[in-house]
Simulated assay, not measured.
Amino acid sequence: MGKYTGIPCAACGRLFEEGDDIVVCPVCGAPHHRECYEKLGHCALEERHALGEAWQPPKGKQGDNPALVICNTCGAQTPADEPFCINCGQRLDLPPRQEQPSPGGSYYIPGVGPIHKNATIGDASMEELAMFVGPNAQFFLPRFQAIHQRKSSFSWNWSAFFLNFFYFFYRKMYLVGGVLMLVSMVTMIPSVVFTNEYMKLFLQSITGQVIPYNEELMIQMSSIQQYIRIGQMALSLTLGMFANKLYLNHAQKVIRKTKEEFGEGSPACLTGIATRGRTNMTMVLLVLCWMIFLYFAISFAITNNIISIL
């Protein structure tokens, strides 16, 4: 970590010394003293992550050793008499690169390019939407723009297609996630009824005992399950096509309420937008635990029913 010697910690501002225990943010590359990073629990520049801003070392600044210079390209220290950086190979006399944020009130989204902070989608600015979405702003912002410019709700989202209601809980769209989970639970009923009757038939075949089961009901439930599978595929396709539009509507609604509560442009407003947006993995794990519990509860009920018959 010698290349950070003489550069200030992103959290406390103290200059790094040789031998310091340094932690580098995996998102933006900002260096911290380990104790500073662990005390904060996150990168000191976390709010800039949503804007796609990468940490840059002080340009042209020397470290504690005057015989070393800091490369304007990668930030590594190189002996002053060397014409090229020993880390990246670039010339040491090159001028500093122009990094984001770019001039004119724009900021840079990796894979998207410069986007003006004052550009809006409805009554939400791009900066506010980036703060709301968080680290995946580079995925959502161009799709939000396309939806707004085309005035079309279609925009494909693979995560929503595969994850169904889990995706909406993850993105804090709890009402949509709850409705979809309820639909999923209701569609399990024919499968439970079919399994219960099938287990009776199965046990009869291996035990030789006469166990009453409803063959007609089994056939009906089997047919219903076929239609349910078709419906589930149609629902997954629908979610994949319109999840981004639903997320944009949700973001605009939350941003609007947050600005009314804290005042547009205030630091508390931006913090509130980031807090109420982003993601919630804890909720996903809770929902997953509930679904696992439900599965075992149903299995236990079916087993008890079969045992009572025997």
Rank of each mutant, 00 (worst) to 15 (best):
T275Y: 07
E215C: 05
R143E: 13
M185K: 07
A243F: 06
T271A: 13
V24R: 02
H148N: 14
A10W: 07
Q225L: 09
K257F: 02
R171Q: 13
N87D: 15
G240I: 03
I7K: 11
G122K: 00
I109C: 00
I211Q: 12
I206M: 13
R91H: 10
I22Q: 00
S308E: 11
I298S: 06
V179K: 06
M281Q: 13
L203S: 11
A243H: 10
F168T: 06
H33A: 11
M1V: 09
G178F: 09
R34T: 15
M173F: 14
S308R: 05
A297E: 09
K117D: 05
F242Q: 05
Y247F: 15
M131S: 12
S152F: 07
Y295Q: 12
E260H: 09
N244A: 08
L141I: 15
G134I: 01
F161D: 04
M241N: 04
N196T: 15
N118A: 15
I109P: 03
K253S: 14
S184M: 05
P66S: 11
M283K: 06
N136H: 15
T282I: 14
G265I: 01
V193S: 01
I273H: 01
G113L: 04
E46A: 14
A160L: 02
M283S: 07
R256D: 14
Q56D: 12
C9K: 08
V112M: 04
P96K: 12
I147W: 09
S153P: 04
N244Y: 01
H42K: 12
N87I: 08
K172P: 03
E35N: 00
I255A: 08
C36F: 06
F168M: 03
S236T: 06
M173D: 15
C25P: 07
E18G: 12
P57T: 05
N244H: 00
L294V: 03
G60A: 09
E38A: 06
P101K: 06
L45I: 10
K172D: 00
F202H: 05
V27A: 07
F166L: 14
D93C: 10
G231W: 01
Y4A: 02
D21Q: 02
A274M: 14
F132S: 04
A44C: 02
V287M: 12
Q226F: 08
N87T: 08
A30W: 07
A274N: 03
A124G: 10
T5I: 15
Q220D: 08
V254D: 05
N72C: 02
Q252C: 09
D20K: 01
Q225P: 00
N214D: 13
S205D: 05
E35M: 04
I147T: 08
G263K: 11
G104A: 03
V183P: 04
I302Y: 06
M218L: 08
